[in-house]
Design a binder for these strands. Sequence first.
DNA 1: CGTCCCGTTGAAGTCTGTCAACATCCGTGG
DNA 2: CCACGGATGTTGACAGACTTCAACGGGACG
Lengths: 241, 241
Amino acid sequence: MVTKCTNCPLRGLPLFLEFSQDELSFMQRFKTGEMEAEPGTHLLSQGEQSPQLFTVLTGMGLKYKMLRDGSRQVVGFVMPGDFLGLQAGVMGEMGHSVEAVTTMTLCVFNRANVWDLFSKHPTRGFDIAHLAAVEEHFLGDALATVGQRPAYEKIAWAMARFFNRALAIGQVVDNKTSLPFTQQDLADALGLSLVHTNKQLAQLRRDGILTWQKGELSVDDMDALTHMLGDDGEVQTRPLV
Amino acid sequence: MVTKCTNCPLRGLPLFLEFSQDELSFMQRFKTGEMEAEPGTHLLSQGEQSPQLFTVLTGMGLKYKMLRDGSRQVVGFVMPGDFLGLQAGVMGEMGHSVEAVTTMTLCVFNRANVWDLFSKHPTRGFDIAHLAAVEEHFLGDALATVGQRPAYEKIAWAMARFFNRALAIGQVVDNKTSLPFTQQDLADALGLSLVHTNKQLAQLRRDGILTWQKGELSVDDMDALTHMLGDDGEVQTRPLV
DNA sequence: CGTCCCGTTGAAGTCTGTCAACATCCGTGG
DNA sequence: CCACGGATGTTGACAGACTTCAACGGGACG
């Protein structure tokens, strides 16, 4: 059962820039299929060139890089609306891997058609570049956080980003949202040890800032969070591909 | 005295993808001027939308983000061939600032013409996306380095990247290249303190790996460097805009 | 010749990592 | 039904990498 772009559940969300009717029908042709991925599925692999690109419809995943010594750097949490494989699409090789953490449904595109997209529908090409710039912006923020902030604030930043993104796609109900990752995932994203991550999370809970237990995240004091982070916790509108 | 694209000193370098004659003449029209910037000049500012974009012809600079507490994260060293302002060009707002460190000469483009570029010359639009992906790739590497590696290797990584890039644009003579940044700049790029950066640099020198003194960097044991970093120290070919 | 910036070095302090132990949950298999 | 192992989360004690504080040297510049 394939979702039609017309009925795309993401398309009306305020997080995403608007679609013209023209773009909509073009994307419908660009889309080659739909795919369901079980938890643990490797969608894209670091160093390889994937023939397929994806847009996440539902579910969550992880982007990460492995270092030669076996350590892992998580470079992003994948959520609905994210476009995966841009590096493979335009550079020919992924700089990181992408793995499903929950069951995911994905729009599938053909890498070979990316060039068509730029030549036949430049607004969409522009959107691809826009998405790449958004990602660059995000990684800059992440680098600044990992490089400059103490552990307590690193965790606060990551949780705030996740929560605000969940808000923007309507996945927060009752001030709670599902957060299916492990503390190890978070630690690997922030360059912290698992133990220290756990202790600082406990501190944030004791301080009444936020609670993450049993896969559920709730922000208990948004004012304190925004005061600590400035506007670094906010998410920006972006195109949807 | 304006450099003509035909005579662009960067254009033949193996680091950059090839130019068709068609692209060349188009870029000549896209280019609105040339600019010289003294050390300390702010070329682009975090949070603002610049009317101009640049390609670096000569000289070097810094990309950085300021945090509210006054700390600074350097997110990149700017070198000849780099394209500046991509975020402003497609997103409308810069996520970081760019400052000249040496005297720089820059090709100047008009932000208003970026859209023309995508619509009238899609290969160039594709190249813009390619450049954004290269930057995303770089920031992923930087994040992994800052997040996972010990100080000694962080510095080795940064120096290797810089040196290899200098090699690729023919700025290494006699196994030495000019490195006009300060140790504070490097420390802010790697999330280290100035003092520790200094001490680990001294250790790298004592170990016979590399020497950075009086603004000159030389790599004394490239084998040891590549062995320590794997292929993380390498630079990739990219489009030139 | 004083001042400022940058680099260098030593000593002390602390944030964070490592080690270790235990609790909980869950799927598997006896 | 219960035993078992594996993955995840929690907590305490200790160790260490890195930061902070402090002082000094050299070069550039007015």
